[in-house]
């Protein structure tokens, strides 16, 4: 299971995952430990949201459940909240206001 120096509210679903999943809600400004590094939670996050466990370079795949769930839009650092702003689908653009500018369909 998770490393000892990781906040117990972070759940690791599969050994090779690049993200943890929040077991509970956390408030903005809370400090959490991620693999020995202290990070400050930028915004209030609910159960099920993802926190980066390892660095992911822009264009690399983000792994959850031991499988790719999309590619990093920008470089992701451990402790970052991983969501629409830094992760995009490799399959089809996610429905959101950002979808219109998603480059997934037009670049190769």
């Amino acid at each position: 299971m998770a490393q000892s120096a990781t906040d117990p509210r972070l759940l690791l679903l599969s050994p090779g995952d690049s993200v943890y999943v929040l077991r509970d809600q956390v408030a903005a400004g809370e400090v959490m430990e991620v693999k020995g590094h202290r990070i400050t939670v930028p915004v209030a996050l609910g159960l099920g949201h993802k926190i980066a466990r390892v660095p992911v370079a822009a264009g690399e795949r983000v792994i959850k459940y031991g499988a790719p769930i999309g590619s990093a839009r920008i470089d992701i650092a451990p402790g970052d909240h991983v969501h629409l702003h830094n992760l995009r689908s490799d399959y089809t653009p996610t429905h959101s206001r950002d979808a219109a500018s998603d480059k997934g369909k037009t670049t190769t």
Binding site: L47, K64, I69, G70, H83, R88, D90
Partner: peptide, 21 residues
Amino acid sequence: GSFAAGNAEGGLTTIEEKSLG
């Protein structure tokens, strides 16, 4: 069958992530 806004509020980012669950 599309990805709903409520899914993103629940922390899901992509359709493949939702389906993987």
